[in-house]
Design a binder for these strands. Structure first.
Lengths: 132, 132
DNA sequence: AACCTTATTAGGAATAATTCTTAATAATAT
DNA sequence: ATATTATTAAGAATTATTCCTAATAAGGTT
Protein backbone atom coordinates (compact mmCIF):
# COMPACT_ATOMS: atom_id res chain seq x y z
CA UNK A 1 0.00 0.00 0.00
CA UNK A 2 1.63 3.20 -1.11
CA UNK A 3 1.12 6.21 1.12
CA UNK A 4 -0.36 9.35 -0.31
CA UNK A 5 0.35 12.90 0.66
CA UNK A 6 -3.05 14.35 1.24
CA UNK A 7 -3.85 17.89 2.23
CA UNK A 8 -5.52 16.65 5.39
CA UNK A 9 -2.48 14.67 6.44
CA UNK A 10 -0.28 17.71 5.87
CA UNK A 11 -2.68 19.89 7.83
CA UNK A 12 -2.64 17.48 10.75
CA UNK A 13 1.15 17.48 10.73
CA UNK A 14 1.26 21.26 10.43
CA UNK A 15 -1.09 21.65 13.36
CA UNK A 16 1.19 19.52 15.55
CA UNK A 17 4.08 21.79 14.59
CA UNK A 18 2.08 24.99 14.84
CA UNK A 19 0.25 24.38 18.09
CA UNK A 20 2.35 23.83 21.21
CA UNK A 21 2.18 20.13 22.12
CA UNK A 22 -1.51 19.94 21.22
CA UNK A 23 -4.09 17.40 22.37
CA UNK A 24 -6.37 15.65 19.87
CA UNK A 25 -9.11 18.04 20.86
CA UNK A 26 -6.95 21.09 20.22
CA UNK A 27 -5.99 19.75 16.80
CA UNK A 28 -9.61 19.02 15.91
CA UNK A 29 -10.65 22.47 17.05
CA UNK A 30 -7.88 24.10 15.02
CA UNK A 31 -8.73 22.10 11.89
CA UNK A 32 -12.48 22.41 12.23
CA UNK A 33 -12.49 25.54 10.10
CA UNK A 34 -10.65 23.60 7.38
CA UNK A 35 -13.33 20.89 7.40
CA UNK A 36 -11.01 18.10 8.49
CA UNK A 37 -13.04 15.48 10.28
CA UNK A 38 -12.26 14.05 13.68
CA UNK A 39 -11.66 10.52 12.42
CA UNK A 40 -9.26 11.89 9.82
CA UNK A 41 -7.31 13.58 12.59
CA UNK A 42 -7.11 10.35 14.58
CA UNK A 43 -6.14 8.30 11.52
CA UNK A 44 -3.42 10.68 10.42
CA UNK A 45 -1.97 10.99 13.90
CA UNK A 46 -1.53 7.21 13.82
CA UNK A 47 -0.04 7.33 10.32
CA UNK A 48 2.35 10.14 11.22
CA UNK A 49 3.45 8.23 14.32
CA UNK A 50 4.08 5.11 12.21
CA UNK A 51 6.21 7.24 9.93
CA UNK A 52 8.11 8.55 12.92
CA UNK A 53 7.29 12.17 12.10
CA UNK A 54 5.40 12.78 15.34
CA UNK A 55 5.08 11.07 18.72
CA UNK A 56 2.75 10.99 21.66
CA UNK A 57 3.42 12.37 25.15
CA UNK A 58 1.32 10.56 27.78
CA UNK A 59 0.03 12.92 30.46
CA UNK A 60 -1.21 11.43 33.68
CA UNK A 61 -4.74 12.61 34.44
CA UNK A 62 -4.98 14.74 31.30
CA UNK A 63 -5.32 14.13 27.58
CA UNK A 64 -2.27 12.85 25.72
CA UNK A 65 -0.35 15.42 23.73
CA UNK A 66 1.57 15.24 20.46
CA UNK A 67 4.94 16.56 19.46
CA UNK A 68 6.87 16.52 16.20
CA UNK A 69 10.21 14.80 15.87
CA UNK A 70 13.10 17.22 15.85
CA UNK A 71 16.15 17.15 18.09
CA UNK A 72 15.81 14.66 20.92
CA UNK A 73 14.49 16.15 24.10
CA UNK A 74 12.38 15.32 27.13
CA UNK A 75 9.31 16.98 28.66
CA UNK A 76 7.93 18.42 31.85
CA UNK A 77 4.21 17.82 32.24
CA UNK A 78 2.31 20.08 34.56
CA UNK A 79 0.06 18.58 37.25
CA UNK A 80 -2.09 21.71 37.27
CA UNK A 81 -2.79 22.56 33.64
CA UNK A 82 -1.79 19.29 31.95
CA UNK A 83 0.47 21.01 29.42
CA UNK A 84 3.86 19.77 28.23
CA UNK A 85 7.04 21.80 27.96
CA UNK A 86 10.32 20.92 26.29
CA UNK A 87 13.47 20.52 28.32
CA UNK A 88 17.02 19.59 27.47
CA UNK A 89 18.72 16.98 29.57
CA UNK A 90 22.30 15.80 29.20
CA UNK A 91 21.59 12.13 29.84
CA UNK A 92 20.15 10.88 26.53
CA UNK A 93 23.24 8.96 25.49
CA UNK A 94 23.88 7.73 29.03
CA UNK A 95 20.39 6.25 29.11
CA UNK A 96 20.86 4.80 25.63
CA UNK A 97 23.90 3.02 27.02
CA UNK A 98 21.84 1.71 29.92
CA UNK A 99 19.32 0.40 27.39
CA UNK A 100 22.01 -1.62 25.63
CA UNK A 101 22.80 -3.44 28.85
CA UNK A 102 19.21 -4.49 29.50
CA UNK A 103 17.84 -7.97 28.97
CA UNK A 104 15.36 -6.72 26.37
CA UNK A 105 15.80 -5.23 22.92
CA UNK A 106 15.12 -1.57 23.55
CA UNK A 107 14.18 0.70 20.68
CA UNK A 108 13.93 3.91 22.63
CA UNK A 109 13.32 5.66 25.89
CA UNK A 110 11.86 8.83 27.28
CA UNK A 111 12.05 10.78 30.52
CA UNK A 112 8.99 12.50 31.94
CA UNK A 113 9.32 15.11 34.65
CA UNK A 114 6.16 16.18 36.41
CA UNK A 115 5.38 19.13 38.61
CA UNK A 116 4.14 22.68 38.20
CA UNK A 117 5.15 24.48 35.05
CA UNK A 118 6.47 28.02 35.20
CA UNK A 119 3.08 29.52 34.46
CA UNK A 120 1.20 27.52 37.09
CA UNK A 121 3.94 27.84 39.70
CA UNK A 122 3.39 31.59 39.75
CA UNK A 123 -0.37 31.34 40.00
CA UNK A 124 -0.47 28.17 42.02
CA UNK A 125 -2.95 29.47 44.59
CA UNK A 126 -5.36 30.63 41.93
CA UNK A 127 -4.96 27.43 39.94
CA UNK A 128 -5.44 25.19 42.95
CA UNK A 129 -8.73 26.81 43.85
CA UNK A 130 -9.79 26.41 40.24
CA UNK A 131 -9.04 22.72 40.29
CA UNK A 132 -10.01 21.63 43.79
CA UNK B 1 -13.28 14.32 54.76
CA UNK B 2 -11.54 11.62 56.72
CA UNK B 3 -10.45 8.54 54.82
CA UNK B 4 -11.66 5.09 55.85
CA UNK B 5 -9.85 1.82 55.57
CA UNK B 6 -12.31 -0.40 53.81
CA UNK B 7 -11.88 -4.03 52.87
CA UNK B 8 -12.38 -3.18 49.21
CA UNK B 9 -9.66 -0.55 49.28
CA UNK B 10 -7.28 -3.02 50.88
CA UNK B 11 -8.17 -5.67 48.30
CA UNK B 12 -7.49 -3.27 45.44
CA UNK B 13 -4.11 -2.43 46.95
CA UNK B 14 -3.32 -6.10 47.56
CA UNK B 15 -4.15 -6.97 43.97
CA UNK B 16 -1.72 -4.34 42.68
CA UNK B 17 0.96 -5.91 44.88
CA UNK B 18 -0.03 -9.48 44.09
CA UNK B 19 -0.49 -9.22 40.33
CA UNK B 20 2.50 -8.17 38.23
CA UNK B 21 1.91 -4.58 37.04
CA UNK B 22 -1.78 -5.23 36.42
CA UNK B 23 -4.18 -3.33 34.18
CA UNK B 24 -7.58 -2.19 35.46
CA UNK B 25 -9.10 -5.12 33.64
CA UNK B 26 -6.78 -7.62 35.32
CA UNK B 27 -7.55 -6.16 38.74
CA UNK B 28 -11.30 -6.28 38.10
CA UNK B 29 -11.03 -9.88 36.90
CA UNK B 30 -9.03 -10.85 39.97
CA UNK B 31 -11.47 -9.14 42.36
CA UNK B 32 -14.59 -10.29 40.61
CA UNK B 33 -14.76 -13.38 42.82
CA UNK B 34 -14.65 -11.09 45.87
CA UNK B 35 -17.59 -9.07 44.58
CA UNK B 36 -15.70 -5.80 44.30
CA UNK B 37 -17.36 -3.69 41.66
CA UNK B 38 -15.60 -2.08 38.74
CA UNK B 39 -16.33 1.48 39.84
CA UNK B 40 -14.95 0.66 43.28
CA UNK B 41 -11.74 -0.51 41.63
CA UNK B 42 -11.47 2.74 39.66
CA UNK B 43 -12.28 4.88 42.67
CA UNK B 44 -9.77 3.16 44.93
CA UNK B 45 -7.03 3.24 42.33
CA UNK B 46 -7.48 7.01 42.30
CA UNK B 47 -7.52 7.17 46.11
CA UNK B 48 -4.41 5.00 46.42
CA UNK B 49 -2.60 7.15 43.87
CA UNK B 50 -3.55 10.28 45.82
CA UNK B 51 -2.11 8.66 48.91
CA UNK B 52 1.07 7.85 47.00
CA UNK B 53 0.78 4.14 47.70
CA UNK B 54 0.52 3.16 44.03
CA UNK B 55 1.22 4.83 40.70
CA UNK B 56 0.27 4.44 37.07
CA UNK B 57 2.55 3.34 34.24
CA UNK B 58 1.29 4.72 30.89
CA UNK B 59 1.72 2.21 28.07
CA UNK B 60 1.52 3.51 24.53
CA UNK B 61 -1.07 1.58 22.54
CA UNK B 62 -2.05 -0.67 25.44
CA UNK B 63 -3.93 -0.28 28.70
CA UNK B 64 -2.22 1.61 31.51
CA UNK B 65 -0.72 -0.53 34.26
CA UNK B 66 -0.35 0.01 38.00
CA UNK B 67 2.56 -0.57 40.35
CA UNK B 68 2.96 -0.15 44.07
CA UNK B 69 5.45 2.25 45.59
CA UNK B 70 8.54 0.53 46.92
CA UNK B 71 12.16 1.23 46.04
CA UNK B 72 12.49 3.64 43.16
CA UNK B 73 12.87 2.00 39.80
CA UNK B 74 11.97 2.47 36.15
CA UNK B 75 10.18 0.26 33.63
CA UNK B 76 10.50 -1.34 30.23
CA UNK B 77 7.21 -1.54 28.38
CA UNK B 78 6.90 -4.09 25.62
CA UNK B 79 5.62 -3.01 22.19
CA UNK B 80 4.40 -6.54 21.51
CA UNK B 81 2.54 -7.67 24.62
CA UNK B 82 2.06 -4.34 26.39
CA UNK B 83 3.45 -5.59 29.69
CA UNK B 84 5.75 -3.68 32.04
CA UNK B 85 8.92 -4.96 33.64
CA UNK B 86 11.00 -3.45 36.41
CA UNK B 87 14.54 -2.30 35.74
CA UNK B 88 17.17 -0.66 37.86
CA UNK B 89 18.96 2.33 36.44
CA UNK B 90 21.77 4.24 38.12
CA UNK B 91 20.60 7.70 37.08
CA UNK B 92 17.76 8.43 39.51
CA UNK B 93 19.72 10.93 41.57
CA UNK B 94 21.39 12.42 38.51
CA UNK B 95 17.99 13.14 37.02
CA UNK B 96 16.75 14.49 40.35
CA UNK B 97 19.64 16.95 40.17
CA UNK B 98 18.61 17.90 36.65
CA UNK B 99 15.09 18.53 37.94
CA UNK B 100 16.38 21.00 40.53
CA UNK B 101 17.94 23.10 37.81
CA UNK B 102 14.75 23.39 35.77
CA UNK B 103 12.56 26.45 35.60
CA UNK B 104 9.61 24.55 37.08
CA UNK B 105 8.96 23.02 40.47
CA UNK B 106 9.41 19.33 39.78
CA UNK B 107 7.91 16.78 42.13
CA UNK B 108 9.16 13.69 40.37
CA UNK B 109 10.26 12.02 37.19
CA UNK B 110 10.20 8.68 35.46
CA UNK B 111 12.04 6.97 32.64
CA UNK B 112 10.22 4.71 30.23
CA UNK B 113 12.13 2.33 28.02
CA UNK B 114 10.22 0.66 25.21
CA UNK B 115 11.03 -2.30 23.04
CA UNK B 116 10.53 -6.06 23.13
CA UNK B 117 10.59 -7.73 26.51
CA UNK B 118 12.59 -10.88 27.07
CA UNK B 119 9.60 -13.12 26.50
CA UNK B 120 8.50 -11.48 23.25
CA UNK B 121 12.03 -11.09 21.91
CA UNK B 122 12.36 -14.89 21.84
CA UNK B 123 9.01 -15.46 20.20
CA UNK B 124 9.00 -12.33 18.12
CA UNK B 125 8.04 -14.09 14.88
CA UNK B 126 5.12 -15.83 16.50
CA UNK B 127 4.02 -12.71 18.30
CA UNK B 128 4.28 -10.53 15.22
CA UNK B 129 2.01 -12.80 13.20
CA UNK B 130 -0.42 -12.76 16.09
CA UNK B 131 -0.47 -9.00 16.13
CA UNK B 132 -0.23 -8.06 12.46
C1' DA C 1 -4.66 16.60 -20.17
C1' DA C 2 -8.03 12.79 -19.49
C1' DC C 3 -8.27 8.31 -17.30
C1' DC C 4 -7.52 4.54 -13.90
C1' DT C 5 -6.65 2.63 -9.63
C1' DT C 6 -7.17 2.61 -5.01
C1' DA C 7 -5.78 5.03 -0.67
C1' DT C 8 -8.10 8.47 1.82
C1' DT C 9 -11.95 11.10 3.26
C1' DA C 10 -16.45 12.78 5.80
C1' DG C 11 -19.90 11.56 8.56
C1' DG C 12 -21.86 8.97 11.59
C1' DA C 13 -22.47 4.44 13.96
C1' DA C 14 -20.30 1.33 17.08
C1' DT C 15 -17.32 0.23 20.68
C1' DA C 16 -14.49 0.76 24.72
C1' DA C 17 -12.98 3.20 28.73
C1' DT C 18 -14.03 6.00 32.54
C1' DT C 19 -16.94 8.76 35.45
C1' DC C 20 -21.27 9.81 37.63
C1' DT C 21 -25.65 8.86 40.25
C1' DT C 22 -28.33 6.98 44.01
C1' DA C 23 -30.01 4.38 47.60
C1' DA C 24 -28.00 1.03 50.74
C1' DT C 25 -24.08 -0.27 53.63
C1' DA C 26 -20.45 -0.18 56.98
C1' DA C 27 -16.34 2.25 59.18
C1' DT C 28 -15.26 5.17 62.80
C1' DA C 29 -16.18 8.60 66.53
C1' DT C 30 -18.78 9.49 70.48
C1' DA D 1 -24.94 1.06 71.22
C1' DT D 2 -25.76 4.94 68.29
C1' DA D 3 -25.03 8.47 65.01
C1' DT D 4 -22.57 10.27 61.29
C1' DT D 5 -21.09 10.12 56.83
C1' DA D 6 -17.57 8.07 53.66
C1' DT D 7 -17.91 4.19 50.80
C1' DT D 8 -20.18 0.76 48.21
C1' DA D 9 -22.75 -1.88 44.17
C1' DA D 10 -25.05 -1.48 40.13
C1' DG D 11 -25.87 0.45 36.28
C1' DA D 12 -26.67 4.82 33.64
C1' DA D 13 -24.23 8.50 31.42
C1' DT D 14 -20.43 10.39 29.39
C1' DT D 15 -16.22 10.58 26.86
C1' DA D 16 -12.65 8.91 23.87
C1' DT D 17 -11.47 6.18 20.12
C1' DT D 18 -12.21 3.03 16.37
C1' DC D 19 -14.92 1.18 12.70
C1' DC D 20 -17.90 1.35 8.53
C1' DT D 21 -19.32 2.87 3.89
C1' DA D 22 -20.10 5.41 -0.10
C1' DA D 23 -17.87 9.37 -2.19
C1' DT D 24 -13.58 11.70 -3.28
C1' DA D 25 -9.04 12.74 -4.91
C1' DA D 26 -3.91 11.60 -5.21
C1' DG D 27 -0.76 10.19 -8.23
C1' DG D 28 0.63 7.04 -11.84
C1' DT D 29 -0.19 5.89 -16.88
C1' DT D 30 -1.10 6.92 -21.24
Amino acid sequence: MKRRNTQQKQMVYDSVVMLDHPTVEEICCYLQQSNVSQSTVYRNLTVLMDEGRIFKIPIDGFADRYDFTQSRHYHVTCRHCGKAHDIDVAYQSALDQVAKGLDASISGHTVLFYGACDCCKDNSEHILTDIL
